[in-house]
Nucleic acid binder design. Structure first.
Length: 113
DNA sequence: GAGGTGACTGCGA
DNA sequence: CTCGCAGCCACCT
């Protein structure tokens, strides 16, 4: 149960994000049941660079599709480069057609309904 | 053990 | 569209 830290749970979900798609911190938080604690998701990503296997943090953005965490990459511009590599267009630190590439774990993973 | 922090979100103006 | 305010809670010092 609590064997896996909140961090690990976040990493697992992020790694399930298919290439060319993105999701929001709130979506992940909601999937983990900590909907009200979207901040914790972002906080967990703080160690994403140290996680193993690596976490595609570039596929995680805020609710506006804005690359809020780009400055946590090294170098910062790496985030949009990785996204562009996967076919996600980024303009002015924001994802173009965000709705089209949005990947909601609560929908894609919880196929109950 | 207590306090501060923050890769967020929703709502009101 | 943008800006500001408050709530949220696991992790770190």
């Amino acid at each position: 149960m609590d064997r896996a830290s909140f961090y690990d749970q976040v990493y697992q979900v992020v790694r399930l994000i298919p290439a060319g798609r993105v999701t929001s911190y709130g979506a992940i938080a909601a999937y983990l049941g900590t909907k009200g604690s979207s901040r914790m998701v972002g906080y967990a990503m703080n160690n994403s660079g140290l996680a193993d296997p690596p976490v595609p943090a570039q596929r995680v953005v805020n609710r506006n599709g804005l690359l809020t965490g780009k400055f946590h990459f090294n170098p910062p511009e790496l985030m949009e480069q990785l996204l562009a590599q996967e076919g996600v267009e980024v303009k002015d630190d924001r994802i173009i057609n965000f709705k089209s590439v949005f990947w909601d774990p609560t929908v894609e993973l919880d196929l109950e309904k």
